[in-house]
Amino acid sequence: MTSASMTQEQTQESDEVLVMAARLGDRRAFNLLMQRYRPIAFAYANATLRHKEEAEDAVQEAFLRAFQSLPKIRVNATWSKWLMQILRNHCIDILRHRKCVQIQPLLDSLPDLGDSPEWAVLKEERREKLRIVIDGLAEKYQIALLMHYASGRTYKEIALALDIPESTVTGRIAGGLRILRERFRREGLL
């Protein structure tokens, strides 16, 4: 069996099988789990922390903690929920730490190099306004909106990341859009 076909075969395995294999020392199985859940984890961390590098660090840390704690997981425990709980806790820790040390995202505010300078400035202004409006939203709306519209995650994935029902995600996004509309009208953006 070639390695490619083996990877294809293992990718179809359920999480439980991969977790069990990882518990028995198969790092390739853990790598497959990582590939499966990294996009959701990054989307959540990025929406929560609003800083790409910090989000990447948080994702790395969460996966490492999950790897170290593999023997603690029970056979019938849900791996994805467990991983996302680790990530949520870690993000809360980072946010707590951030209250003491204020970090400003630098790279995020740089304009795209491919655009003309005028267009880049206009685009950046619009983005800045949008960012201010979104920052004014409650955290629950912010995370749901950013995960859906900035990272392109589905409602199901957002529900998994936030550990809430899918209908609640729909409600939060709808509520966020309503508030955004009100604020856009107030700011004259609509």
Binding site: R38, D108, R127
Partner: peptide
């Protein structure tokens, strides 16, 4: 979706991890 920057994790993340 157009206004918000599409945040994608860097390609090194997998390798680093």
């Amino acid at each position: 979706p157009q206004a918000l920057a599409q945040e994608v994790s860097s390609t090194d993340l997998d390798n680093l991890l």
